[in-house]
Write a protein that binds this DNA or RNA. Structure first.
Lengths: 231, 231
DNA sequence: GTCTATATCATGATAGAC
DNA sequence: GTCTATCATGATATAGAC
């Protein structure tokens, strides 16, 4: 059964894919620069060179577009992290994976995304950073679902490397470190400006190295003592 | 020259003050919960029990209201910090103020504000946290002006306590710690929920103690070495 | 000084032509 | 599948009555 070229192309959903991808790319740029509320779909679609109605057709609406955009990137990011964690744990045999290695597995993919200006990776990094600070109610479920497996496995692995920490101390420090990571990516593109040129925007390896050392020292500091007098 | 009671009251600007304050309180609540763009002045004024036009009259507009709200809190916060720093430096004679004390002087006022539910302090904390992640162009100048003196003096003091750090290492770590602080306040009201009850929302002293230890260990970790091979 | 009423504008969504 | 044209809504700002 012979098929025309046009039928073949449509069977690959290429036209849709092209439009969907142009929308996603424009969405990442717009939402990263302006935030969810301030970015408008008119701007966004105009910049993507597609019709306003295309968003409703392909994604369903503004919220669904935002969720799809985040989910796509987050899923790929977390797959990378889980794969490398699995590999590292196999290499370690039954012993705990060293803490610096764990941190690196967790954050290097994010730094690499943030370097990927060509494919919009730097945009999604800012968006993910914002997700933590500005809670969008419709994103709660999405974020919880996407982060849960990664967080569970890495927390488990980190706690094996730092067994002396109580769950409470561990979770507080984890929260501090997540905040440091989020903020780092939120301001990475302005570091030169914010530090009068002393820290450079494009010094990703330096930032990564410093962040790993920072997180390691934060996790391995001695456990806090209860307040004196608390029986 | 006898003045009526009404004239006397108006000469104190009491009605204005009451309205201004009601607007500011409602603004803090609305902006903290919804963010700048999503919060609307209709909601806000309705909740404050004042007329919509009162905002334009007393503040000039939405942006000016937001700026006034942030400035008022930030100024008082930074005054507290600078006063306590000055006092600590006098007590220390010429010697550097110990690092843990410096961190505490910097963050305790923020923790205390965040406890002050009655006067809306917890709202402004979330707003300040967001200011770092979601950049509002019209706030750049305000934030720079308000933070500059505090940041300059504390940076100087911290660097005296941790002289071994290069400016670059110091600024990267400062950025990490600022991020940790910002995130802590952004999620403090949800810590119980996020950690299945292990970390408690209302455990402000525990959070403060852990944060100080965290920041101290981050600042006093050995300076990073240049990458091997970089001449 | 304060508030009502309105002006003006931009948004997200969608019905219906092609 | 795609696009045009339009809808309904809610935004900020303000002119003018009191």
């Amino acid at each position: 059964m012979k098929r025309s070229f046009k039928t073949f192309v449509f069977s690959m959903n290429l036209p849709n894919a092209a439009i969907r991808d142009r929308i996603l790319a424009a969405a990442e740029s717009a939402f990263a620069r302006q935030g969810y509320d301030a970015a408008s779909m008119r701007q966004l679609t105009r910049h993507a060179g597609v019709n306003l109605a295309a968003v409703s057709y392909h994604f369903g609406g503004k919220e669904s577009l935002y969720a799809a955009m985040v989910t796509r990137r987050l899923r790929s990011l977390n797959e990378t992290r889980l794969n490398s964690l699995e590999q590292a744990e196999q290499e370690a045999g039954g012993r705990p994976v060293p803490l610096p290695r764990l941190i690196e597995l967790l954050v290097r993919p994010v730094f690499e995304l943030s370097q990927d200006e060509a494919h919009g990776g730097s945009h999604i990094i800012r968006i993910l950073g914002r997700s933590l600070a500005e809670p969008l109610p419709f994103m709660d479920a999405v974020l919880a679902t996407e982060f849960q497996p990664t967080m569970a496995l890495f927390s488990q692995a980190v706690r094996r490397s730092v067994p002396q920490l109580s769950p409470e101390d561990f979770l507080w420090r984890l929260s501090f470190i997540v905040g440091a990571m989020q903020h780092t990516f939120a301001v990475l593109h302005r570091m030169s400006e914010l530090t009068s040129g002393i820290c450079r925007n494009d010094d990703r390896e330096g930032a990564l190295r410093r962040f790993i050392e920072f997180a390691v020292s934060a996790f391995s500091a001695p456990a806090t003592l209860p307040v004196a007098g608390a029986s």
